[in-house]
Design a protein around this nucleic acid. Structure first.
Length: 317
DNA sequence: GAGGAAATAT
DNA sequence: CATATTTCCT
């Protein structure tokens, strides 16, 4: 358990000791310390919230019991009729509690830069909870608009767990009362039962995607169908690939640095400490850019022949 | 089916 | 509020 952390730490230390420049060493260390501080802060948050969650749950249980009791009494001991009623109540409070039920079993693996050791760590979404961990991640981590935190990953533990397979659409009926009650919730046009699950592009999946892309000669010429053909991922639909491609292309335009379709892709390093130097906090001027950066100047832009720039002018929705 | 943009979901 | 993913249109 602590294993991963130890490894990580030693990794860091090793990395630092490998660094020659003194001030550089220092900066790296400080950087990591900051990262840990951030993490600690988050844990603190949990510490504070969890008891609260527990209280809510216990509360709910209490109330449930009380209600049941009352019903029982008022019905003269005939506990049958209340059954259906009961489940409705349960739904009710479940919905108010659900907010808290997801985030409890996370395992942060930021700082994991050891390619081999993190292969089994796949950030995945939960069928319902949806811990959206998809972010574009490229060789040097240049491609990730992470905004919330570092990489939050959950350990794939299932037997034969295929990291590529998306969380199977577990049909969680019944009590799954997703919080569709907030102010002004647009009509949910799909039944709870068969809602389409958002495709979660895990790093592994994305790797495959990029791999396929490279095989096909670049993002701008590869087509969704071809990509999907190469990826060979069960359950991956054409549309999903298309959409991902769309996003990828857009991103590549912004950050052309790594758009190089050159191969050399098998075990792309990643993990790359998704750590952002905290922007504020004191006026410390660590104006340095990201640690490590790799250039591969080259744009496979090609000719963007856009025969007809058709725009929608109308839309009847 | 591919591209692209609006609509939604998180 | 920004992004990611889905849906709709051409």
């Amino acid at each position: 358990m602590g294993d991963r952390n130890l490894k990580t730490i030693s990794d860091i230390l090793a990395e630092v000791s490998r660094t020659d420049d003194f001030s550089r060493k220092l900066r790296k260390l400080e950087f990591y310390v900051g990262a840990f501080e951030d993490e600690l802060r988050k844990i603190d948050g949990f510490k504070r919230e969890l008891p609260n969650c527990m209280r809510l749950l216990i509360d709910a249980i209490q109330r449930l019991k009380e209600e049941e009791l009352m019903l029982f009494k008022s019905e003269g001991g005939n506990g049958r009729a209340k059954a259906s009623n009961d489940s409705r109540e349960r739904k009710n409070w479940m919905s108010s509690v659900q907010l808290w039920t997801t985030p409890v079993q996370y395992e942060t693996n930021y700082l994991t830069r050891n390619q081999d050791s993190i292969l089994h760590l796949t950030s995945r979404c939960d069928q319902e909870g949806e811990g959206n961990g998809s972010k574009f991640r490229h060789k040097e981590g240049s491609f990730m608009p992470f905004k919330k935190s570092y990489d939050v990953a959950m350990v794939e533990e299932e037997r034969g767990g295929n990291p590529l397979r998306q969380p199977t659409a577990v049909p969680v009926h019944g009590l799954t009362v997703k919080g569709h009650f907030g102010p002004g919730r647009p009509k949910l046009h799909q039944q709870e039962l068969e809602k389409k699950h958002r495709r979660c592009w895990s790093p592994e999946l994305h790797d495959r995607f990029v791999d396929a892309l490279n095989q096909l000669g670049g993002a701008q010429i590869a087509t969704p169908k071809q990509i999907r053909g190469i990826m060979k991922v069960e359950g991956l639909t054409n549309d999903e690939v298309k959409s991902h491609l769309q996003k990828y292309r857009i991103h590549v335009r912004k950050v052309p640095t790594l758009s190089n379709p050159v191969a050399a892709h098998s075990a792309s390093p990643q993990g790359h400490l998704c750590l952002l130097p905290r922007p504020d906090e004191e006026g410390s001027a660590t104006g340095g850019a990201s640690l490590e950066e790799e250039e591969e100047g080259e744009k496979t832009e090609g000719c963007v022949s856009n025969g007809g720039a058709h725009k929608h002018v109308d839309r009847n929705v």
